[in-house]
């Protein structure tokens, strides 16, 4: 898909100038969380009976969760304002669709670019947690694609949503979806600690499956068929999001 590669090239050209700003958000912020919570709070937690699965330290429990969450946050941010900007404010997509580029080139190009961005976040953060001695197995290599998949499962549906917005309505998305997910999807504590009905809710959130998958690969605690369910959930959400994005882009750009 040469057209999708063109879209990636365009975004890379823009990113060459803007990368500094994104380093804090996607990379330094999770690292600071890891140090403050993992090392700081971890000392207190490990003293008591935290009953963390597989008897790991709090730092080891937290680190893979933050990896999945960092990908969620970067993906959500990059798929909201920038997409609606290119659709509505700058009309970049309108300009590009006046060329032989097709709508599917735009959608797959944006997702491919997102995968590139998420890979850099995941690789860098995986390197950091390796320095902290978190991984228990070489399978941690696979935590990188698992974290990227977690991000894409957010990115694809948010791109579709952003493409339908005529104004930015993303504050609600971050306040009522992304932030609660960050706090209650098993990043900081096992969802078994939630009250019974909330456990079910948490199970159905995409971040929970991303965290479980990434954590399982990092700490070598994966059991089949659980990992298959997590992966299938994330892949399905991505595929549904791609379908919705294609529909939303067509409705805006080819009416």
């Amino acid at each position: 898909m040469i057209g999708a590669i063109r879209m990636v090239q365009r975004n890379a050209l823009v990113y060459r100038r803007a990368w500094r700003g994104s380093v804090f958000f996607s990379f330094l912020q999770p690292t600071l969380f890891l140090i403050a919570m993992g090392v700081g709070v971890g000392r207190l937690v490990n003293r008591g009976d935290a009953s963390l699965p597989a008897g790991v330290d709090f730092l080891d429990f937290l680190a893979p969760g933050l990896l999945a969450a960092a990908c969620m946050q970067t993906a959500s941010f990059e798929s909201s304002w920038p997409i609606s900007g290119k659709m509505t404010w700058q009309r970049t997509y309108e300009a590009i669709t006046a060329t032989p580029m097709r709508i599917r080139d735009l959608v797959f190009g944006e997702l491919a670019w997102m995968a590139v961005r998420l890979s850099t976040v995941a690789i860098a953060f995986t390197a950091i947690i390796t320095l902290f001695g978190v991984p228990r197995s070489p399978l941690v290599i696979l935590a990188v694609p698992a974290a990227v998949l977690t991000g894409l499962a957010f990115s694809a549906p948010i791109i579709a949503y952003a493409a339908t917005r005529k104004r930015d309505h993303f504050n609600g998305l971050f306040r009522f979806i992304i932030t609660p997910l960050f706090l209650f999807s098993g990043v900081f504590f096992p969802i078994a600690r939630l009250p019974e009905p909330l456990q079910t809710v948490a199970w159905f959130t995409p971040l929970f499956h991303g965290v479980e998958l990434v954590r399982g690969l990092t700490l070598n605690t994966l059991e089949s068929p659980a990992w298959l369910i997590h992966a299938a959930y994330l892949v399905s959400l991505t595929v549904i999001g791609i379908g919705a994005s294609l529909w939303a882009f067509r409705r805006r750009l080819h009416a």
Partner: peptide
């Protein structure tokens, strides 16, 4: 579209890249 040139009513230049890059990037499409 490969054989058309389109000047839309509202400018839709790529504001995130330079003047020359606008032309080079468009050529890639």
């Amino acid at each position: 579209k490969a054989r058309l040139g389109v000047v839309p009513q509202q400018d839709n230049l790529d504001a995130e890249i330079t003047v020359r890059e606008n032309l080079l990037m468009y050529a890639r499409y």
